[in-house]
Design a protein around this nucleic acid. Structure first.
Lengths: 402, 402
DNA sequence: TTGTAAGCGTTATCAA
DNA sequence: TTGATAACGCTTACAA
């Protein structure tokens, strides 16, 4: 025990912390709670209480402390506070991409809500599954570093879920469901069903489906749910969805573009394309245009999301409340962090709505040559040729009027 | 599995930290460096050294320590480490929006680079200046919390700059310049000049300019530089840029849309629109389409950025290397953080390049009725009517072949 | 090569 | 209402 020697003489001794902060105009060296205590003529404990607005501090003392803190330009070290309390005021946000509209929008909203409540956001980009998955959800990177977790639309594997559970922190998900944790999302199946019903109502019977990849992608649940929705709607309408028209892409514009390219190049192309996301739908739109097809004259296209760029393509889509989901998820997490929440995982599904723009219209021709009414006549080839012809004709200009 | 009873018996004393981590399947209670030391039969100092790969540790000892740590599922508390070292392994990223393509893309890249080097990203969304600016750059929120700062395209005011300087941390900016700090960006003026020259080379003489708002927006410098670039190019070509054709929008699709709407509604509309960003250019494209104008037949549109959606609109633009800027900025910051950097602020300007797509073409008609060669004939009205007519005609179908 | 112990800056317990 | 003081968990001189 050698406490008495020097009050706090040689401070620069230990940590590299005491380097020599270059620009420190007003204050000088970053002052600690001790300096404030000395200046105010009280103990550090009192300073701590006064500064945090706890009671058991006389009005006069508090005033003095505040003045001293102000004068010294004192700011408490969040690190030290964290070490002492175990709380960090930081929320980790787990997501697969940051540069995709949905995610950046949700995070933007989340950040806003959390910031207003004094929390900061730590990005935990786990990337796409198709790539080597960096171990972002590593115990050692998160333990003691965050107070809560927000999982955005990423399906975690057993290992990652384990890490999360082991952390023992409140978790709220957006999109993907995580057993035992709060969740906010939309009914993906219903959303896509709406889109399909729209096409069916317009009279389309030869509909192609560009689903989201559920294999390597992180958004497996979303992909699966949306695919199921399409099948459900088609089945309900008693319209077949032939395997050749039921393809999968990687959720991107390029992916949708390529998928549609293949679809439209068929001898028996669809009259409509239902994409599981607007980005893919926009890709399909581009593919059609590149091939000289007019949308919606030759092809109807519908997507899901109401991406901010959907309107620029006059894309008909099923809108989901993106910002609201982020906001709600953040608020639910805040509730957990503050402790005043019922207990028991809650799930909130926000509703979606069809936004009809100009990318959909009734099918132009009776393009249901051999499907369904397959009563003996095997005219596949002939019809295929016919379609090709018609398209070629229109492609090179002079489309019929009206 | 309930490992060894409780090597950490009466520790739960102080902080609220020791709540009672709900789900802790494998490890039990979070073990500390002490447990590892005990288990390995060495001192905590040795454990610290061994675990951090420092030398002065015998191979054998290191092995034992690693084994013990592994067995105990030990993970060092970053908080405690920060308190001791003064470093946090966290970088703050200051930005105005997170839900705009440029920013989310840059952040995505930044996060990737930093994560691979063991740094985490803390979002510091300062929002748009036009709104009440939250004090995100508050001393007390940042002090001791981050090791470095990345400022993305936001012009800070004196107060904010002060906070940053007072922090005494390495700072690197993307876009906006901050005196005394490293910077990576593009030559905004040159980029726009390229776009303008492209239009001029095509023969356009009546060019409208939709600049970015430099008033309330955070990206003032970018707005100003780009506007200057346009003026420079026009002046060099000795082509006038009448005030009525030189407008400003808020960088968004909607903003560009509205601006173009007004421009095209004029009796003497431009033959081309040069927007300071692709988002605004896309908006202009939409405005034209909504009015029944064909691009590039009736109007050429060029933007700047090469937004990911530019290709879906076949937009001619001047591409800037967005990801590279993020990557480079992050790397420069890492260099500073590691200390091995020359000293003295560095500036790196990446080059931009014209990407010609299908939104630009030579002006269709001699649309320079009264501008420049104003030799007596005041045919404004007539020409205006002519244009209206031609447009209306083409609008309703039957475009000429080829 | 390893151990001892003094910080790092707060918070929180327990007396006073 | 205050003040000592023991944690918090780790790093790092300095000794051994």
């Amino acid at each position: 025990m050698i406490p008495p020697p020097a009050p706090r003489a040689g401070r620069a001794g230990s940590g590299a912390a005491a380097g020599a902060p270059a620009g420190v105009p007003p204050g000088g060296a970053p002052s600690s709670i001790r300096d404030v205590a000395t200046a105010a003529g009280v103990s550090v404990a009192t300073v701590s209480r006064a500064l945090r607005g706890l009671d058991r501090v006389s009005a006069d003392t508090r005033r003095r402390v505040l003045a001293a803190a102000e004068a010294l330009d004192y700011v408490a070290s969040p690190t030290a506070a964290s070490l002492a309390t175990g709380r960090t005021s930081v929320v980790g946000v787990v997501l697969p991409f940051l540069d995709r509209w949905f995610f950046s929008t949700v995070v933007s909203e989340v950040e806003d809500v959390l910031r207003r409540s004094g929390y900061q956001v730590l990005l935990l980009n786990v990337g796409d599954r198709s790539l080597e998955r960096p171990m972002v959800l590593d115990q050692r990177l998160l333990a003691k570093r965050i107070d809560g977790v927000l999982v955005l639309s990423v399906d975690l594997d057993a290992e990652e879920t384990g890490v999360l559970d082991r952390l023992g922190l409140p978790v709220v998900t957006v999109g993907s469901a995580l057993p035992g944790h709060d969740r906010v999302g939309i009914d993906d199946g219903a959303a896509v069903e709406t889109a399909a019903q729209h096409l069916l109502a317009l009279g389309h019977r030869r509909i192609a489906h560009v689903g989201g990849d559920s294999g390597t992608d992180v958004r497996r649940a979303t992909a699966v749910d949306r695919a199921l929705g399409v099948r459900r709607a088609m089945a309900a309408a008693d319209v077949a969805l032939p395997g050749q028209l039921d393809v999968v892409a990687d959720w991107t514009v390029t992916g949708g573009w390529r998928a549609a390219e293949a679809l439209l190049a068929r001898r028996d192309p669809p009259t409509a394309v239902l994409a599981a996301s607007d980005e893919m739908a926009i890709g399909a739109l581009c593919a059609a245009r590149a091939l000289g097809w007019d949308v919606p004259r030759h092809l109807s296209v519908v997507g899901v999301d109401d991406h901010e760029m959907a309107v620029t393509h006059d894309l008909t889509t099923v809108a989901q409340p993106v910002r609201s989901q982020g906001r709600l998820a953040a608020e639910m997490l805040l509730g957990r962090l503050r402790g005043h929440v019922p207990a028991g995982a809650r799930e909130v599904l926000l509703s979606t709505s069809l936004v009809v723009r100009a990318s959909t219209a009734p099918p132009r021709r009776e393009v249901r040559p051999r499907r369904r009414v397959v009563l003996g006549r095997q005219v596949l080839a002939a019809v295929g040729g016919d379609v090709e012809h018609a398209r070629g004709q229109e492609e090179r200009g002079a489309p019929t009027n009206r």
